[in-house]
């Protein structure tokens, strides 16, 4: 009886530990949902700078 109790407690404890350890961090964190993404597109006609002052960029 005692042995059963011991192992059941032990087992449930292990389950709890493994659950929190192995669950992906996504479940517990507040990563913002960027599903409604804004489309960012560079304007292909823009000419970028090669030099600023005397420094190459």
């Amino acid at each position: 009886m005692e042995r059963k109790k011991f192992f059941s407690v032990f087992g449930l404890g292990m389950m709890g530990i493994l659950f929190t350890r192995f669950s992906s961090l996504k479940l517990f964190s507040k990563i913002p949902n960027n599903k409604k993404k804004i489309k960012v597109k560079i304007n292909p006609l823009a000419v970028k700078r090669q030099k600023i002052g005397n420094k190459n960029v």
Partner: peptide
């Protein structure tokens, strides 16, 4: 249920 959840998620 916890084990099932654990097994199903790719940690």
């Amino acid at each position: 249920a916890a084990v099932a959840g654990t097994a199903c998620s790719d940690y």
